[in-house]
Simulated assay, not measured.
Amino acid sequence: MESPHGAAVTAESLGMRGPRGWVFRNVTFSAEPGALVAVEGASGSGRTCLLLALTGRMRTTEGRAETGGLRLPKQAAAVRAIAALGPVPMVSELDPAFTVAEHLGERALLQGRYGASLRSLLRPRAERRAAATARVDEALEAAGLDIAALPKAGRTSVRDLERLEALRLSVALALIGKPRLLAVDDTDLKLSDAERDQAWALLRSVAAGGTTVLAVCSEAPEDALVVRTDAAAGDRAPGTDGRPTGATAETAPATDDPTTTITTDEETADAFAETGRS
C-alpha cells in the first residue's frame, strides 16, 4: 500500500534552551500526514524556533521529535529534504529586488539541478524545460497566485506585492519541490480579517492536497491542530483549544525566573546564534 504524501509530525516533551534560558519547552503533540498544524503564541515565545526545529533546521536540547518517520535532530538532513520553508524572516525571505518571474525561474532551475533524479537529468532539454514549466504552473495554482493579475505580470517586483500576494508566492516557491511538509512563519502578520481568512483557506487547501502544513500564527483557526508555545496554554482546560480529538499540545508552565524563560525577540535571536543560524 502506498504511503501518504504528507509527513506525520510528532513531538514529546520537546524543548530548546538558548544562552539566556528556554526558547520553548515541554511541547507535545501528534499530527497525521496532511494535517494543518497551527503553532500559536505571542511574538518571542519560540514559535519560529519550534518551526525550524521540526523542519530539521535548528537543534533541540531535550525531548523527542519525528518528521516523516525521521528522528530529530539525528536525521535533520533527511528531514530538510522533505520539508520546505515558506516565508521565514532571516531564513527564507523573498528578495524585494527580484521580480516574481525571477524568483520562480531561479527556484525551478535549482529544483531541476539539485532536486531531480538522475533519470530526469538525462532527458532532452526541451522535455526538462516543459516539465519545469508544468511544475511551476502546478505550484502557482496550488498557491492561488494569478501572475497575469499582478500589476506587471511576471515582471512585478516583490517589493510591489501585497502581503497576501507575497505569501502566495512564497508558498508557490516552496511547493515547486513537492515537499511532504510545508512550514510557514507569521501566517497572519499584517493581514486584515478578510486576508487572514484567505491565507488560512490557502493553507487548508494545501493540506487537503496531502501536504502537511505547519504554520506559525498569533491566532489559530478553529479547525487546525493547535500547538501553543506560550505559558497561557498551561491554563487552558483540555479540549477547549479547537484541536482534533486525540491530539495533544502542551507547553511549559509560567515562571517568574528570567533565566529560564525566553520572552523577547532578542533572546530568540540568541538561540539562533547558538544553533549556528543568523
Rank of each mutant, 00 (worst) to 15 (best):
V23E: 00
V23C: 15
F24K: 09
F24R: 08
F24A: 01
R25E: 03
N26C: 00
V27I: 15
V27W: 01
V27P: 10
T28P: 11
F29L: 03
F29K: 10
S30I: 01
S30D: 15
A31Q: 08
A31H: 07
E32A: 15
G34M: 14
L36T: 02
V37K: 10
A38E: 03
V39S: 02
V39T: 06
E40A: 14
E40V: 15
G41Q: 00
G41E: 01
A42G: 13
S43H: 09
G44M: 03
S45T: 07
G46Q: 07
R47H: 00
T48R: 02
T48Y: 00
C49R: 13
L50S: 03
L54S: 13
L54H: 09
L54T: 10
T55H: 09
G56R: 09
R57P: 05
R57V: 05
R59A: 13
R59E: 15
T60G: 15
T61M: 11
T61S: 12
E62G: 03
G63K: 12
G63Q: 12
A65T: 12
A65C: 10
E66D: 02
T67Q: 02
T67G: 08
G69Q: 06
L70P: 13
P73M: 11
Q75W: 03
Q75M: 04
A76C: 10
A81H: 05
A81E: 11
A81R: 14
A84L: 11
L85Q: 04
G86P: 11
V88K: 01
V91C: 01
L94S: 04
L94C: 05
D95K: 08
P96G: 02
P96R: 07
F98N: 11
T99A: 05
